[in-house]
Amino acid sequence: MAGNRPIKFRILELCNKSGGAWNYEVVRQIQKEYNLKGDYQRDSINFDLIELASCSLLRDVEVMVDEEGIYKKGFLLHKYVITDFGKARAENACLMYV
């Protein structure tokens, strides 16, 4: 059920598709599902993505400068995909079907 499991679990689920997912898509989706409003919560969720990437559970497949302000003007947009390590780690946690 949406909004019931730890945020990092849901992030891994959302990034578990071929081609990966853009950080702003994931952040918006989570904000909606978990009813987390405001800039601080948005940045906080985005930082969870950065931590996951830093620990090699996610890796970015595409990076782009946010020129138009899709997310935050002048910042980087990352497209993340789950790594094999991330899949293995998530197997007993959230990605039951992997």
Binding site: D39, Y40, D43, S44, N46, F47, I50, F75
Partner: peptide
């Protein structure tokens, strides 16, 4: 802790 996430 409250503000540093806005730098990313």
């Amino acid at each position: 802790a409250r503000t540093f996430v806005s730098q990313f």
